[in-house]
Amino acid sequence: MRTYNILFLCTHNSARSILGEALASTHPSGKFVGYSAGSTPGGKVNPIAADLAVEMGMDRALLKSKSWDVYAYPDAPKMDFIITVCDNAAGEVCPFWPGQPATAHWGFPDPSQVQGSDIEKKAAFVAVMNGLQKRLDILAAMSLDKLDSMSLKEVHTKA
């Protein structure tokens, strides 16, 4: 079975994109390898996002806040899908992605901006995680070899 590389983009690459990377990499279908990056990475992964990713089975050492530039280099993994998960990253001019991967925007509110108790903050991260999981489940059920950008965008409207 072929696996598909998915790059999740968010401005700071500290929460939503990290969750996307972890969910894709640990998806039960085995169809995806997740990556994440940001246009202006914050340099650290949000601890709640990191804990959830580890609970999914990700190695904490692999969770890094990094620039999307690292995936534009010639020796970088070729992406099949580029998915922005925050409205800021969706509106930015992205680097050229070799191979013309399908792109989509699956916008979610920033859970790291939630104020309140630790339980309320974690609930915001879990809500984003569940939303991403639902979209990845729909994507995994599709015939990916025939998928194009328009079909990928429809995953957002069905979720």
Rank of each mutant, 00 (worst) to 15 (best):
K158R: 14
W106Q: 01
A141W: 09
S151Q: 13
S117N: 12
T103F: 07
G30F: 07
N88D: 15
L62H: 06
L63F: 03
A37L: 07
W68P: 01
T157W: 08
K44I: 15
P98M: 05
L7S: 08
A89K: 02
L139Y: 04
K153R: 11
W106C: 00
D80G: 10
A127T: 03
K121P: 08
P28V: 09
N46S: 10
E120C: 04
A89F: 01
D118V: 02
T11N: 07
V155W: 04
W68Y: 08
T26Y: 12
G43E: 10
K78R: 14
K64I: 15
A50F: 09
S67I: 05
A123G: 13
K122M: 14
E21K: 03
L52Y: 00
I6D: 01
R60C: 01
P41K: 11
H105K: 05
K121V: 05
Y35F: 15
P41T: 12
L152E: 05
V85I: 00
G107W: 03
L7K: 05
V85Q: 07
M79F: 10
V155K: 04
P47H: 05
E55A: 15
H27V: 08
H27F: 06
I18T: 09
S65Y: 02
D51V: 00
P41E: 11
G131D: 01
K134L: 12
T40C: 09
D51C: 09
R135P: 03
V85G: 02
I48M: 12
I6F: 00
N88V: 12
Q115G: 12
A141H: 10
T11S: 13
G107Y: 11
V93I: 14
E154L: 14
A123M: 08
D51R: 05
I82W: 03
A72E: 03
T157R: 07
P28C: 12
M142A: 06
G20S: 11
Q100C: 12
C86R: 00
P101T: 13
T3D: 13
V45F: 00
P95D: 01
A50C: 14
G43W: 06
F8H: 13
M58Y: 12
L9K: 05
A37M: 09
D87A: 08
S149E: 09
E92W: 10
G107N: 11
K153M: 13
D59V: 04
I138K: 10
D148A: 09
H156I: 07
H12F: 05
Y73S: 15
Y4K: 14
T3G: 12
A53S: 15
Q113W: 11
I18C: 06
S117W: 11
P98K: 10
